[in-house]
């Protein structure tokens, strides 16, 4: 980035709530861009024929997943005070996005995209009378060394070991005929696993109710070295 123009980096923690969970990551980024435009913040653009706003995210969220904690960074050409940026941007965010925290990042820091190494999720769905079976299946999953999952993409089908990305144990709670799984998953430069893939793997390998029609997946934390991404460098 050419250093001639003044540049002030702001990092924010935002949500992606139920109303927006079927908006792709790219479209989510575009809606934040539009909000920044409406807020009339003096945001910086890249140089070149087709300039784009200097806005980046920590980690893409899978389609259909809600999040309590997305992290973004944008660069302003003016040194505005935190409360002003916070208020102006908050006022322009659509339903389904809340700005929870914002700070100016001082000094040198790594690209936001390369910081996150762990994501935590809560996955809930209707048990449909299979509470016991689910408990056993999760137990088996936790005990397994390796879990080979067939990842199907439009281009190809690949076998991957998804267990390598799971940190610690999956936890299971059942209440009011609902099952709630808690998972901590590794994000590595080589890849990661989606929470929906874990659910699919478990239900398939144990012949469990396969038409879980309404699964709620919520990202509750995104961490760097075990700490909050707002403070990571």
């Amino acid at each position: 980035m050419p250093e001639k123009a003044a540049a002030f980096t702001y990092r924010g923690e935002v949500t992606k709530e139920a109303a927006l969970r079927f908006i792709s990551h790219l479209d989510y980024s575009a809606l934040i861009e539009r909000a920044i435009c409406r807020a009339k913040l003096p945001v910086a653009y890249s140089e070149g024929f087709n300039p784009h706003m200097k806005l980046s995210f920590a980690s893409a969220l899978a389609l259909g997943v809600t999040s309590d904690c997305e992290y973004m960074e944008f660069i302003l050409s003016k040194d505005l005070c935190q409360p002003e940026v916070f208020e102006r941007l908050s006022a322009q965010l659509p339903d389904g996005v809340t700005l929870k925290a914002l700070k100016k990042v001082e000094g040198k820091h790594k690209a936001l995209m390369s910081l996150a190494d762990e994501a935590r999720y809560i996955i809930s769905f209707s048990a449909e009378g299979q509470e016991k079976e689910w408990a056993q299946a999760v137990q088996a999953f936790n005990n397994a060394e390796v879990c080979i999952y067939q990842r199907v993409t439009p281009k190809k089908t690949r076998e991957i070991d998804i267990k390598q990305y799971v940190i610690g144990q999956l936890e299971i709670k059942t209440e009011n005929n609902m099952i709630e799984l808690t998972a901590a998953l590794k994000i590595t430069p080589q890849g990661s696993v989606k929470p929906a893939e874990i659910v699919e793997y478990i239900s398939k390998t144990h012949g469990l109710n396969n038409n879980i029609s309404d699964v709620d997946i919520r990202r509750t934390e995104l961490l760097a070295g075990g700490g909050n991404l707002m403070d990571a460098h």
Partner: peptide, 21 residues
């Protein structure tokens, strides 16, 4: 609309509304 339906259709945001304005 349950999430399995929305996961399986092309461009689910066609059906979920809540746009700005």
């Amino acid at each position: 609309l349950t999430s399995d339906i929305l996961q399986s259709v092309v461009k689910p945001a066609r059906y979920t509304g809540s746009e700005w304005n």
